[in-house]
Write a protein that binds this DNA or RNA. Sequence first.
DNA 1: CAGTGGTCTAGACCACTAA
DNA 2: TAGTGGTCTAGACCACTGA
Lengths: 234, 234
Amino acid sequence: MSPASRIKSYSDVKAEILRRIAAKVWAVGDPIPNEEDLAREFQCARTTVNRALRELAEAGIVERKRRAGTRVAEAPAQDMRFKIPLVEDEVAAIPACYRYRRLIRETLSDEAIAHTMKLAPDAPLLHICALHYGDDAPFQIEERWINLSAIPQAREESFQDISANAWLVREVPLSRLDTQLYASAASAEIAKRLAIKAQSPILVIERTTWRADQALTHAKLSYRGDHKISATSA
Amino acid sequence: MSPASRIKSYSDVKAEILRRIAAKVWAVGDPIPNEEDLAREFQCARTTVNRALRELAEAGIVERKRRAGTRVAEAPAQDMRFKIPLVEDEVAAIPACYRYRRLIRETLSDEAIAHTMKLAPDAPLLHICALHYGDDAPFQIEERWINLSAIPQAREESFQDISANAWLVREVPLSRLDTQLYASAASAEIAKRLAIKAQSPILVIERTTWRADQALTHAKLSYRGDHKISATSA
DNA sequence: CAGTGGTCTAGACCACTAA
DNA sequence: TAGTGGTCTAGACCACTGA
């Protein structure tokens, strides 16, 4: 093998391991040497090799099991990180001029939403519907249901000047998100709001946010069909 | 503050920091103590605190700058990891019986695709079109263009029994992916293949895979509109 | 230019689990 | 039960960069 000429940092170790996998020195499914042996070969501390392998495992490149060792993963890295920024920033990045308009604010109960949020069918919800514009063209419809038992302070907020999304990011940081993404046909109402034809394809993101297994909010974000979500993965 | 009763591991440190952010002991935008001070408070090694903070920074919860210190991030963690598995596994997870059928295999040049792949307009491409079924219902259309200059060995493969996707994962591991995701209306041809009505909404994933800035393949994966992509994020 | 985070080291103990 | 990865420690040097 190569004399491990200048491998010093954990990222060097990562790069060298990636090189060997790409060059099929270690093929998919194959075991690779244990941390101690690699550390000896690369003349570095085991900690350094450990960090390299740990990060490769997080990225899905290798699979690690105690006692069984480390292997090149079978289905490497098919997962991607999509960045879903605040709409404000999304619009600003186009670039376009951002504008926000609240359409609806009401307190109600909704059986279907409550079910999704795992709440009692008659749980009190604050329902907000709003439009986000880019350069005066409708960009996204945000429909939001807030669990008032969990976030009572939402009662005090009009959401006239700040979107529920932005408010929640400030007010209730660090919630866990469940996200679903799918294509749908625009209903008459949605089509009107997005200024497209009824039955046009739209892209929908549905999200429920949780804190400690309690649902805080549910959101349905509708985009025109031509809206593209991008991601890059190493 | 709390006497830092039983904080021993880096994940305890993470949890405690998250707790303090959620409890607004440290509000969004605020600086938090440096690693040495935290290590003293938690009575652990700085390395332990470092790992906790590093992972929180990777997750977007905090922002770190040398000399300037660590702060609670302004727009915390709006990014998600979507897992896009091999179709085979996706179908098996439903669960349904997976079947594959190749529709087209041809060598051609395509200006638009070549442009996307940053190749010469007349670059030779291998074009594969195939259908993935779940329980005999069309599940996904895979259209694939392979850069034959980069992957000449694809000429030898019929893709009759193995999908381009599965073949590529084995043959060309570790490529970088660019992904785009959007909603569209089914063309007559696509509708027929997916056994849906023309103009129905479909979900499209387009992906280009790269190795060292050279495009290897481009893929267009079309799903019925009701197909949902899910993700969870801490 | 001083203080912060970034990383490496060498050694140790532990938890898990496959052989 | 032996071998692997998982983690902690204490100390050190370095790179960056904002006060």
